[in-house]
Design a protein around this nucleic acid. Sequence first.
DNA 1: AAGTGGTCTAGACCACTGC
DNA 2: CAGTGGTCTAGACCACTTA
Lengths: 252, 252
Amino acid sequence: MTSATGGSQPKYWLIAVNLGEAINGGRYVAGSRLPGENDIMREHGVARATARQALAQLVNWGLAEARKGSGIYVREFRPIVRDGIERLGPSTWPAGASVWAAETEGREMAVDQLEVAQADAPGHIRALLGLADGGRAVLRSRRYVLDGKPVLLSRSWLPTAIAAGSPITQPDPGAGGIYARLAELGHAPVRFREDLRSRMPQPTEIERLALAPGTPVVEICRIAFDAGGTPVEANEMTADASAYVFRYEFDR
Amino acid sequence: MTSATGGSQPKYWLIAVNLGEAINGGRYVAGSRLPGENDIMREHGVARATARQALAQLVNWGLAEARKGSGIYVREFRPIVRDGIERLGPSTWPAGASVWAAETEGREMAVDQLEVAQADAPGHIRALLGLADGGRAVLRSRRYVLDGKPVLLSRSWLPTAIAAGSPITQPDPGAGGIYARLAELGHAPVRFREDLRSRMPQPTEIERLALAPGTPVVEICRIAFDAGGTPVEANEMTADASAYVFRYEFDR
DNA sequence: AAGTGGTCTAGACCACTGC
DNA sequence: CAGTGGTCTAGACCACTTA
């Protein structure tokens, strides 16, 4: 194994690629234990730091996770499907299975860390909501926890001019949620835009979402418009990418 | 700086968090140079490996990139918007040369590594297209390059029963692309489903997309249905997450 | 108690960049 | 040519898991 493909690639990389191919090739089942640092040192005749570097690659690729005092294990991917469109009304089309095995049934979604406040909206939110400089907004912030694992952070901004004095400013906005309250206020959301991007998480997100190393987050920014085209809500969400598949279905 | 917040966190982590906050706080402009390994060793009184570990965190968080022989620099994020719905409307696909014309906005999108072949579809594609065991499919595979930087890999599968003998099996399917050809064959796509997930890239994807460390990929699996509800195309795409924002707009 | 991964030090040589 | 990051070695101590 000392000289393999081209010879120009570093040892730790070759070791990591070998192990990665073994995982993807199914030679290690999800959840099973991989060779540890000592095994790699012995098998490949390398120093400890080199073996660690190889394993760090597998962790960064999202293929493995380290458990202190125990070993390195193959990660699993069991996402839930978040349907961006059909959520609002069932269609006549057959509900297709996802490419990626997704299991929603029997899993409990809970809400956590709920906070409601009035605040000065940051610049990009003001621009999205069409608020004047210093325009204030209602911020509803919360965390979603699936089977004990936090999976989504949500920060929902609504113009104070619309929401002030309504149940929207209460922790529990009542049956139907804030969209039902907006409808009662004459601002029923009828059009939505969702922008998605993915990136690696920041330390605060790593902590709040309890993210394993090698896990990206997906940022979703949803804007809801009423019938007059006025933006009535901007919802910034941060999702654990290993927990979600995002689905959009549309015609034409 | 030797003892900061709680005291329980490792040195390299505190150094990385400090630098990360400095970047997010705007104290380092995008593209500017960060303190190097020697600077950190001197300023924090740590060994070389510890300084490297701190900088590796910044790279893994996607905040910085290392340039051999030069230094460590703050990364920039300049994505293009991929509109998942308006893009596939009837006004764009019969006429436009490619779906990308609407999105590139002055930047140059090229196609690369184009391959067309007939192949045995893998199991998950067979399931999505409703193909029998051993059912063959046409595979159109290509790479999109934006301003010299590869940004998207695409593997499009079509049932041989539909596509065989048509221009779809040619490298250049003609004006309007394969969707116009499918329409001529009586299988005009009228409904689409896109499933998105994000994960860290594998070595082959790192190479084909020339990905910087700390960059996730977004996998998009799009399925196109004709008016009869028959799936006529499954397109597996792999995008450089730092190059894209995915946009979906919908009513109700 | 033995084994594991996590952190850290103190060296070394290399390839590359920039002046 | 001096400085940079990339790779690698050979140690050390720690906290944690498992049996």
